[in-house]
């Protein structure tokens, strides 16, 4: 396995300091953190599934179940925890966290698209109990 340092040196990367990398991209990523915060606030402010259902007939959604406890926002919160664990390769580990970890082909494709994460709630609940 190629280490980050060796591959980076081969590319001519050895001259960049942490300070340079931060100077270049801090503002962009500061904005991304605020986007994420505002998104979670927006979800909190939105009507719950129960009250929305009584207000109007809802359009078809790819996601079923209780919208107040959506597996996607749950997956997002678990990924945010990985950002803070101080370990390397955060991008790889988050992608693995959100991946379907089954190994056998499924019977029939239920749709063409993908949702971006698997439902981790049962797995983490079981871990919590163990």
């Amino acid at each position: 396995m190629t280490t980050g340092t060796t591959a980076g040196t081969a590319l001519g990367m050895h001259n960049r300091t942490k300070r340079q990398v931060i100077d270049e991209a801090f503002m962009e990523h500061r904005a991304k953190v605020l986007d994420l915060a505002a998104f979670l606030d927006r979800v909190d402010r939105a009507a719950s599934a129960a009250s929305a259902a009584s207000a109007a007939s809802s359009g078809a959604s790819l996601v079923t179940g209780d919208q107040d406890d959506d597996f996607r926002t749950d997956a997002l919160r678990r990924a945010i925890a990985l950002l803070l664990d101080g370990k390397p390769e955060r991008a790889r580990r988050i992608l693995e966290l959100w991946s379907d970890r089954s190994t056998e082909p499924i019977a029939v494709a239920p749709m063409k698209g993908a949702l971006g994460a698997v439902d981790l709630r049962a797995e983490f609940q079981a871990k919590g109990r163990a």
Binding site: W98, S99, D100, G113, A114, L115, G116, A117
Partner: peptide, 13 residues
């Protein structure tokens, strides 16, 4: 290879 949550499994298959 598949997108998003299906990519890792699909790549191995």
């Amino acid at each position: 290879t598949p997108h998003l949550e299906d990519k890792l499994k699909g790549t191995i298959l």
